[in-house]
């Protein structure tokens, strides 16, 4: 367990020290705040627009973190960072879990910053308290990081370096709109995760509370999917030659 935390902390330190991350968070918050100016576009629904924009941007941020993971793992393998780490008493499976944990924590920190920033802007703009639903929906965005980062790890070890991020973007994008994928029964909620389970933008906009039981169950589902994807990844990774 200690090994996993060590790898994970190395990962999040590495990402959270990049100044560009905070610049992007700031950009996201500026976009959220600017929703108030779109009174024509939103036909007086600025409040709803702002909630929606904050959720979409937060999901995109989560996706970016996962994509950065699909860049980082092949890079560590290519540059030899991984071989230094794996020459220590550290199993390859532990390395992958550590990377995934690192990604989840990084994503959680970034998404939480965006969520809190959005709440603050919302409160400043409309003088309203933050409803439970808004909190829940942002929490679900963070929880979606669990299956998403496992998927990122899987693609990062399965696919060649340049292709992994592209496939991840495409799959995550489709996975958020499984209506399209529902026609392919094997994929739907099977090999690929059904990320639509974590998407409650409509609830947020219309302030319809989500049962806490659902949040719990969907978290469990995410953990199960992550376990599945990570096992698959480790079967491949155990046999891989590392540069």
């Amino acid at each position: 367990m200690n090994e996993i935390i060590t790898i994970a902390s190395g990962t999040w330190k590495n990402v959270l020290r990049m100044k560009v991350v905070y610049f992007l968070i700031l950009c996201a918050l500026v976009l959220v705040a600017s929703a108030i100016n779109y009174d024509v576009l939103s036909m007086g629904l600025q409040k709803e627009l702002m909630i929606d924009v904050s959720l979409v941007l937060n999901s995109i941020a989560a996706m970016l973190v996962v994509i950065s993971l699909t860049f980082e793992i092949p890079k560590e393998l290519r540059e030899g960072v991984a071989s230094t780490l794996l020459s220590k008493p550290l199993g390859r499976f532990q390395y992958l879990i550590g990377k995934m944990f690192g990604c989840i924590v990084t994503g959680a920190v970034i998404c939480a910053l965006i969520a809190v920033g959005s709440f603050f802007i919302f409160n400043m703009s409309f003088g309203e308290r933050i409803g439970v639903t808004m909190f829940q929906t942002h929490l679900l965005v963070i929880l979606a990081l669990i299956p998403m980062s496992a998927l990122g790890v899987l693609f990062a070890v399965l696919l060649p370096e340049v292709i992994a991020p592209i496939i991840t973007v495409v799959v995550v994008w489709f996975a958020f709109s499984t209506k399209f994928l529902a026609g392919i029964p094997v994929l739907y909620g099977g090999i690929l995760p059904d990320l639509d389970l974590f998407n409650f933008r409509a609830n947020a906009v219309y302030q319809v509370q989500i049962p806490w039981m659902y949040v719990l169950l969907v978290t469990l589902w995410g953990i199960c999917y992550a376990a599945f994807a990570l096992s698959l990844a480790s079967i491949v990774f155990e046999r891989k030659d590392i540069k």
């Binding site: 590495n14 990049m18 540059e79 960072v81 230094t84």
Partner: peptide, 16 residues
Amino acid sequence: KKRIGFLPDSPAFSRQ
């Protein structure tokens, strides 16, 4: 590996 020290051919470590 706890009892071994290893230096890879082109040492590269996390830059940050």
